[in-house]
Amino acid sequence: MLNRKPHIDQFKTLAFFACLMSMLVTNLIHGQQDAQYTQYMYNTVSVNPGYAGSRGHLSVAALHRSQWVGLDGAPKTQTLNVHSPIGYRGAGGGISIVNDQIGPTSETYLDVDISYTIQTSLNARLSFGLKASGHLLDIRFSELNQDITNPGGPDPTLQQDVDNKFSPNIGAGVYYHTDKFYIGLSVPRFLETTHFEESSLSTAAEQMNFYFITGYVFEVNPFLKFKPTVLTKLVQGAPLQVDASANFMLNDKFILGAAYRWDAAVSAMAGFQISNEFLIGIAYDRETTDLGRAVFNDGSFEVILRYDFMKTKGNVKSPRFF
Rank of each mutant, 00 (worst) to 15 (best):
K5Q: 14
H7Y: 08
H7L: 13
I8N: 13
Q10K: 10
K12Q: 15
K12S: 15
L14T: 11
A18K: 13
C19K: 15
V25M: 09
Q36M: 12
Y40M: 01
Y40R: 00
M41S: 10
N43Y: 05
V47K: 08
N48P: 04
P49H: 02
G53T: 03
H57E: 14
V60W: 02
A61R: 14
A62H: 08
H64K: 14
H64Q: 14
G73Y: 03
G73V: 01
A74C: 00
A74W: 05
P75W: 04
K76E: 12
Q78N: 07
Q78F: 13
T79H: 03
T79C: 02
L80Y: 04
A91I: 15
A91L: 12
S96H: 06
N99R: 14
I102R: 01
T105H: 07
T105V: 09
L110R: 02
Y116T: 03
Y116L: 07
T117Y: 02
Q119N: 15
S121Q: 08
A124M: 10
S127D: 08
G129E: 07
G129F: 02
A132P: 01
G134L: 06
L136G: 06
L136I: 15
D138V: 09
I139Y: 11
R140C: 03
E143N: 06
N145T: 07
D147H: 07
T149P: 02
G152N: 15
G152L: 12
T157R: 15
I170K: 11
G171P: 12
G171M: 09
A172G: 13
A172S: 13
Y176S: 01
H177S: 10
G184V: 13
V187D: 08
V187H: 07
P188I: 01
T194M: 08
H195V: 15
E197Y: 10
S199C: 04
S200N: 05
S200D: 10
A204E: 11
A204M: 12
A204N: 10
E206L: 13
M208V: 14
N209V: 05
T214R: 04
T214D: 10
F223H: 11
F223D: 15
F226N: 05
F226E: 01
P228V: 05
T229V: 13
L231M: 13
L231V: 11
L231N: 05
T232H: 02
L234T: 04
L234Y: 09
V235G: 14
V235T: 14
A238F: 05
A238R: 05
P239R: 12
P239K: 14
Q241S: 11
Q241Y: 04
D243M: 00
S245W: 02
S245G: 09
A246L: 08
A246H: 10
F248E: 01
L250G: 14
K253P: 01
I255L: 09
L256F: 01
A259F: 02
Y260V: 10
Y260K: 03
Q273K: 06
S275T: 12
L279H: 00
G281V: 11
D285S: 00
D285I: 00
G292S: 06
V295P: 15
G299M: 08
E302D: 06
I304R: 02
I304H: 05
Y307H: 11
M310H: 15
K313C: 11
K317P: 06
S318Q: 14
S318P: 00
P319K: 03
P319Y: 02
P319H: 05
